[in-house]
Design a protein around this nucleic acid. Structure first.
Lengths: 209, 209
DNA sequence: AGTTCAGTCAAACGTTCGTTTGAATCATCG
DNA sequence: CGATGATTCAAACGAACGTTTGACTGAACT
């Protein structure tokens, strides 16, 4: 435990609570209570609540970035012109993979991601860095080669569609028990369904205007 | 102005601010300031901040509900077995149509919808009522008839994909200027792109497991 | 033994929040 | 005109918030 233990316990607690209640909906007191730490520990270890959020986001996002990069590298090493389905899988797959122990089927991580993406709090907005930009641009270029007839704007729209589906997927958008007793989405099935769904969507012919 | 004017000015201000900063990120003071009303007016006209939110949501959601219902009615009157594309258009189209005056290309309304859908605040969760459930079930049944080979769970997953794309579409998910100087998404083009994207996604063959 | 220093702690600070209060204002109608 | 009921207003309430403070702890060093 080189990182002082309470530091990581605070990170764990904050990740859980930010995912569940959002940034503004989570008080520093709730975090330190859950972590079994003192209230002042957040200021001591992270400086402020906003900087704690940044640390939580970094810890969640970095493995996803690495997996997306590695996936594209492998694809391109094997074949300079990957299929749309391959690209979708390499890009969207890692968003389903991260399931820290104790996460209920990955739903909590998904929730955190969508909270990050859609939280209107100003602190949530400035988390993307050069790394995320570079990854997005590399995939954009690969998709452009795989879909040469697609106009740039529509390609850009579809890239965001991927993010929307993968981010929101496991949230109970219609917040009620699923109809007809459909069980909550299983992790692996959701991953496959998303890839099917998104590969078909990305492969659609350009919209006629 | 049968509804006492300040009442609707508060509704307008609240709609704008909830969309931009979320429920918890918007103070009652910010709302009444923007509305040019007194702080106590919210309590007087709506009872509480949470009830004000409910009123805002109702005002935004009801025209969408009506359009979705009317669209499906028209489709079924013309043909008892509508195509997937027709169903997608009737369901997702109204989510693009609502553009109150002063809305910058509908982006603000979209932002409000995604804020409603993904806001972790407890008050945001309990807005769906029997109306939304009924609409969703009718579309679910129509899609089921149009896609008879699709398992129930995957159909359900795809329905939520529609909501994810339509809700998140106009948010700058990667919050930075679009790459290569792509202009912000035009309202009508985004609507067409979304229908193309979603119709292809919905029409994909079932996932093989 | 004495010093140092990262870490923890209880307590308090000042601010902002949603809500309540009670008086003031206004239009309406007898 | 005077009374009534709806609406607006300035002011205050108590609670919760993020952050700061300064004393305390305990292991690691000379």
């Amino acid at each position: 435990m080189a990182p002082s233990d309470t530091r990581t316990q605070i990170l764990d607690a904050a990740e859980h609570l930010f995912a569940e209640r959002g940034f503004r909906g989570t008080s520093v007191r709730a975090i330190t209570d859950r972590a079994g730490a003192n209230l002042a520990a957040v200021a001591y270890h992270f400086g402020s609540k906003a900087e704690l959020l940044a640390a939580v986001v970094r810890r969640v996002i970095e493995p996803i970035n690495a997996a997306q990069t590695a996936g594209l590298d492998q694809l391109l090493a094997r074949n300079p012109e990957p299929t749309v389905t391959d690209l979708v899988e390499a890009f969207a797959g890692p968003l389903f993979d991260e399931m820290p122990a104790g996460d209920e089927g990955g739903a909590r991580t998904s929730r955190l991601i969508v909270t990050i993406l859609s939280d209107p709090a100003e602190e949530m907005r400035n988390w993307t860095g050069p790394a995320e930009d570079a990854i997005r641009d590399r995939y954009l270029a690969a998709f452009r080669r795989a879909l040469p007839s697609l106009p740039e704007e529509e390609l850009w729209f579809r890239m965001r569609g991927i993010l929307a589906v993968t981010a929101v997927d496991r949230i109970q958008v219609y917040n009620q028990p699923n109809p007809a007793g459909v069980p909550p989405l299983a992790g692996e099935a959701a991953r496959q369904w998303a890839i099917t769904f998104l590969a078909a969507a990305m492969s659609a012919p350009p919209t006629q205007i």
